[in-house]
Amino acid sequence: MRKEIPSYRNIAIIGASGALGGAFLTQLAKRQGTERIYAFSRVEKMYDMPVVTAHVIDYEDEASIKRAASTASKNAPLDLVLVTTGMLHDGALMPEKSLRDLSADKFQRVFMANTVVPALAAKHFLPELRKDKRAVFAALSARIGSISDNQLGGWYAYRASKAALNMVIRNAAIETGRRCNEAIIVGLHPGTVDSHLSRPFQGNVAEGRLFTPEFSVKKLLSVIDQLSPANSGKCFAWDGQEIEP
Rank of each mutant, 00 (worst) to 15 (best):
K3P: 00
E4Y: 09
E4W: 07
S7F: 06
N10F: 02
I11S: 04
I13G: 11
G21C: 13
A23D: 10
A23R: 04
L25S: 11
R31E: 15
G33I: 06
F40E: 08
V43R: 14
M46R: 14
Y47I: 08
Y47Q: 03
V52I: 09
T53D: 07
T53W: 02
T53L: 05
E60Q: 14
A63W: 03
S64V: 12
S64R: 10
R67D: 14
A68L: 02
A68T: 00
T71Q: 13
A72G: 09
S73V: 04
K74H: 15
D79P: 07
T84H: 02
M87R: 00
M87A: 06
D90N: 15
A92G: 05
L93Q: 04
L93C: 01
E96K: 01
K97E: 05
S98E: 05
F107I: 11
F107W: 14
Q108M: 14
F111L: 13
M112G: 04
A113H: 00
A113E: 00
V117A: 02
L120H: 14
A121I: 05
K123H: 13
E128A: 15
K131Q: 15
D132W: 03
K133H: 14
F137H: 10
A138C: 08
S141K: 10
A142F: 03
I144G: 01
G145H: 01
I147A: 05
N150W: 06
Y158E: 01
R159D: 12
K162Q: 06
A163P: 14
A164L: 14
A164D: 11
V168Y: 06
R170Y: 03
R170C: 03
R170M: 01
N171R: 14
I174G: 01
E175R: 10
E175Y: 08
R178L: 10
C180M: 12
A183V: 11
A183N: 10
A183F: 10
I185L: 13
L188A: 01
G191F: 05
G191M: 01
L197P: 01
S198W: 04
P200S: 08
F201R: 06
Q202S: 08
N204I: 11
N204E: 12
V205H: 12
A206W: 02
T212E: 12
T212I: 13
T212A: 09
S216T: 00
K219Y: 02
L220T: 00
S222L: 01
S222G: 11
V223N: 00
D225M: 04
N231V: 04
S232Q: 07
S232P: 10
G233N: 07
F236A: 01
W238T: 00
D239F: 02
G240P: 09
E244G: 01
P245I: 09
